[in-house]
Nucleic acid binder design. Structure first.
Lengths: 256, 256
DNA sequence: ACAAAAGTGTTCCCCCTACACCCATGG
DNA sequence: CCATGGGTGTAGGGGGAACACTTTTGT
């Protein structure tokens, strides 16, 4: 609201103070498995449990800025490199008792990073780790972070259909095979390669070929793939619809 | 984050307190024009300007609860009736100087109401008014509310494509013509009636016919239309794609 | 020579678009 | 009986799914 309905003579400090934080669901794809960056909690509450990285919003920064700062800290990337990553606001979680200690309102963000050479980074954050989302994560996350993570994962999957989001998981130059890997990993389905290729190339400016192609990347055999980089178009039209999956797929490991 | 990265001996009160508020973009369709519920500001800053209704999040309620409370207050509806309305969180706006007086973080919501018999409601809120979004609104909104409104409007338009959102603008029982009106009004395009009908009926459980049909509603001539009500399905699949509009349409009136 | 991965071509079918056409009611 | 809005039918075209096929590399 910002300004109306303020009772006369209202004093903001009369209210119990709200702490405002950001929580980050940072995703990457490593070896065809979706991973999230998590932190093992040291103190109570939820000592020993996994939690999403995050931190307080400082008095002079927006939630977006705080999220970017935290992203850089937790991944060990420089501010410049981090600002090139995809980072988007998810939604805000504000249940009065989501933190037993005090009133904390948290603005959740989802971030996408390519497979980093270093596991996490030797910077400020000590214990951030990539955790696979393949069902092996059994213990519930701290606070309402399980829900946040599930929401973030769903949002990412949905946006793959009609945006260039998937390239956020890729290095600056990538093959169409790598891009398809991302889709298959996030969605947990197999896609037809010829059709995938056509759809991705159908939207002008979605990906653009880089001239000097065919550098050998994935150690292996087979015809060397052409390299592409992300184009200007951020919306994929027509969208790349996810095949309907009747029942299967492992959505486990997030029940918190 | 909720709990990690707290500096040792951290005292939350050492931080400048954040006020947390909700802002509501409440939409309705009246006479084939999209309207928003706005409030004329009395005091500075932005005295005399239009603003979105909203208010503080109280210490013991979530943002969702606060939004519902405000929605009921501003529309004059009972809490029960209001809770039947569509109300969804949009995103959070947290620029440090979005309010010149103090640090205010606002969680924005979008709400949809059917065309109410009463203009706004004789309840608590004095001056809430429906304002047409047809380009006649020239003055910029207070604070960053112009941006919030634009974001809300875009989100609503987008979600019409693949959800049952449009029925939020309709009374409990409605004709397919009325439903089509909603789409055409929000999107600002004309749709082919036979095809609209088929698409809406294609998803089982999206709308369901109510037995005793053909009540005369819109004073008028023509064959009486069958009545439908919202079904259980909330996703429209396949989606009802918005025709590509090359250039025209009035998106004005929101530049703030 | 064979496997593996990239890339191209082609067929079939479904759905969407566009209209034409009938039905029911009010004036 | 005509205007108006509700409802059904149908021909045609575009695009996606499925799959066959060629190309280029490593072993």
């Amino acid at each position: 609201m910002t300004g109306n309905d303020i009772p006369e003579g209202y004093d903001p400090k009369a209210f119990e103070p709200f702490a405002v934080t950001v929580d980050l669901a940072v995703f990457t794809v490593r070896e065809a498995v979706l991973h999230v960056l998590l932190i093992r909690r040291g103190q109570a509450p939820y000592a020993g449990a996994w939690a999403l990285p995050g931190g307080f919003v400082l008095p002079d920064e927006s939630a977006e800025r705080a999220a970017l700062r935290e992203l850089a800290e937790e991944t060990g990337l420089s501010r410049e490199r981090a600002s090139g990553l995809h980072l988007e606001q998810l939604r805000t979680y504000s249940d009065p008792d989501r933190d037993p200690r005090m009133r904390v309102v948290s603005v959740a963000f989802a971030a996408l990073v390519p497979d980093l050479p270093e596991p996490s980074g030797g910077g400020d954050a000590a214990e951030a780790q990539w955790v696979a989302l393949d069902g092996s994560l059994r213990s519930p996350l701290a606070f309402d972070h399980g829900r946040i993570l599930a929401d973030a994962r769903r949002r990412i999957g949905d946006k793959l259909e009609y945006t260039s989001l998937a390239m956020g998981f890729c290095p600056p130059e990538f093959t169409l095979g790598e891009l398809q890997q991302v889709y298959e990993t996030v969605w947990g389905v197999a896609l037809d390669r010829p059709n995938f290729r056509r759809k991705v190339l159908a939207t002008p400016g979605f990906v653009e070929p880089v001239g000097g192609a065919a550098q050998r990347r994935t150690g292996g055999r087979g015809k060397p793939a052409a390299l592409y980089r992300a184009g200007r178009a951020v919306v994929l039209h027509p969208p790349l619809l996810r095949p309907v999956v009747d029942s299967a797929g492992d959505t486990s490991g997030e029940g918190a």
